[in-house]
Structures are given as C-alpha cells and as structure tokens.
Design a protein around this nucleic acid. Structure first.
Lengths: 173, 173
DNA sequence: CGTGAAAGTTTGATTGT
DNA sequence: ACAATCAAACTTTCACG
C-alpha cells in the first residue's frame, strides 16, 4: 500500500499554503509557547485528547515548520549585571552585497540578540546584550564603525525589559 | 541531620549574587538555549558527564532563575502571512501612573511581542505581530492613540527578520 | 482518535571520589 | 561538594483497532 502524503506538511514546506490550525491546535500551540516542558499526558488533559493524539499533532507542527524549535529561555540578570540596548542603523552604501555583509555580521555576533531589516528612514534595528554600557559602546564601535559602511546609528539603552518573548498571537474563537 | 542550604540558588533568589557558571555550565546553557529538546544522556555525552550529573546542574539553573522557562518557538510565517513592526513611542504625561498604565496595556495585548522601556528621546520600543499592515495600523491606533497619553509614535515595518531569538551570550574561555 | 506494549527517559537513593 | 551507577516510575513511541 502506498503511504499517503500528509497534505498540510507537504504543501507548507513549499512555503505556499499556510498550516490551518483548528481550535485544538491553537490551544496546543498556545500551551507550547507558554511552557514546552509539559508531558503529552498533561497536554492531553488540558485539551481533552489522548497523549498519542497530542503527539501526532505536535509531530505535524514540526513537519509543517509551525514549531521551529524548542529552547530554554535564560534570564541574563541571574548571570550578573546586564545591559540591553536597541540600536537603529542606516547603511551608507545600499548595494545587495553591503546588506548581505551587514546581515552576516549580525548573525555571527552572539551579543546581537535580534536584528530586523526595516522599511523607512532606518535600515535595521539591532538588539544588543552586553555586560555594561561600556561594552555596548565598544561592541557598537566594532560592529557599526569598524566596517565603514554605516552612515549613522542611534543607540537607545534599555532601562527595563517590560515584555520579552517570541510569542505569536493565536486568536481564540 | 540538617539539610545544608544550597548557596547559589538561595542567594541568587535575593537578586544579589549572580550565579557563577563554570565551563561545563556555560556549555550546557549554550546547548539548552540552542535546543532544549535533548535528553539528559545526549547532553551528558556532549559535555562529558553522566545523565544524573547533567540533571542536577539543570535543576540548579532553574532554582537560581538562570533558566527562566522552556518554550516552543513558532514560525509565524508558517501560519500565514505575517507583518512585524517596530514602533517607537513617546508618552505625553510622564507620571509613574501613566507609565504603569502603558506597560500593563503592552503586557496584556498578545500582538505586542516585546516592549522595552528606553533611555533617550523615545520612551518605549514595541514589537507588534499582526496579519497585515492594515491590522498593524488599526492596532497601533487602538494601543497608542485610543488612550490619549502618547505624544507621538513612529512605526517601522519589518521587511525581513534577519535574526530573532532571546539568546544570552555565554563567553567560551 | 484511542489503546496498549515496547523502548527510552527521568528520577532519586546510594555509594564512591 | 560533586560525580557515577542502578532500579523504579514515568514518558514517549508506534502498530493496530
């Protein structure tokens, strides 16, 4: 007998058709975003399904790329004094090569926590995690001045991380 | 017999003394930030420890608050078209009550993924996750104009999420 | 989707360094 | 104080109904 192709997973990998979650999928995904450490039995009890049904669904989320990864979130403050900063950056030369070089640099620097390409007056916003404002300054100089292709950057030090996370909203109804 | 107090955990909970990781702790924490789905045996093989030694350390990270939580990271693009936007906000009235009200609003809105209190010309930077620029506009109006305490805000739509994550740098040496 | 048996993982007591 | 070992409890996995 021929194994039937799983539609949702297969098509979604073509980056064409989105994964369409039902009400239970949305509840499960909300629970997994909150705490990925729960057992299949716990999750099953919370959504009213057997452990293996939960497992099948979660397997589907991974296959469809809906669940990209599972990670531990560290609290930098527990490891010692930490400075966060949001940096707005505009490049000087706007060629594809210059942009690619900048992005590669951001992806390789561990103290760059996030980097987004922007529309508008600024080209990028970058979130830096350092031990101190001094280290932040030194890193900015190296990252944004060393290369010579940054026209201007503006550093906005973070006073308080009011809300952090990577949570994606999943409407209830 | 009296149970000895676990120094690192107990003191760190006072938000005073940081947790001081050794070389193995740093390797483990780096692995857990990358992928929290590995088994204790796998982790043990990667750092050269027995599964139960790994378990004891990880238990310590949780107790010390170094590992805050374990979450599944979803790819919003796999669920359909998504618009990310970075919004810079300055409040009108700067009293403690006005700031508290704003923060509460950010924390309660699921489409606010991140919010940081800033030093400098802007009071806050907010990351919004919506289905479209139109929904982003509607949400901004409700969040930043509905309340009447925002002096001005600047929306920077995201063209490409070059690097995302909550990873905290853990130096090697 | 649920059930149940097999495989693998986590847990904690114990012992040794 | 920390690591290894081992057995019991629990989870995950998968074939089948």
């Amino acid at each position: 007998m021929v194994t039937p192709i799983e539609n949702r997973a297969a098509v979604t990998q073509n980056h064409c058709v989105p994964f369409v979650p039902d009400a239970v999928d949305r509840r499960l995904l909300r629970l997994l975003q909150e705490d990925a450490g729960r057992t299949l039995r716990e999750l099953g009890e919370l959504v009213g399904l057997s452990p293996s049904a939960v497992q099948r669904r979660i397997r589907g989320y991974r296959a469809a790329g809906v669940v990209a990864r599972e990670v531990a979130v560290l609290d930098p403050a527990a490891l010692g004094p930490t400075t966060l900063a949001v940096v707005l950056v505009t490049l000087d030369h706007e060629s594809a090569e210059h942009h690619a070089a900048f992005r590669t640099r951001m992806r390789h620097e561990p103290r760059v926590q996030q980097c987004y390409d922007l529309a508008g007056q600024w080209d990028y916003v970058v979130v830096l995690v350092t031990d101190s404002l001094a280290e932040c300054r030194a890193l900015s100089d190296r990252l944004f001045l060393g290369d010579g292709n940054v026209r201007r950057y503006d550093t906005l030090p973070v006073l308080d991380p009011v809300k952090t996370g990577l949570t994606v909203p999943l409407p209830e109804p």
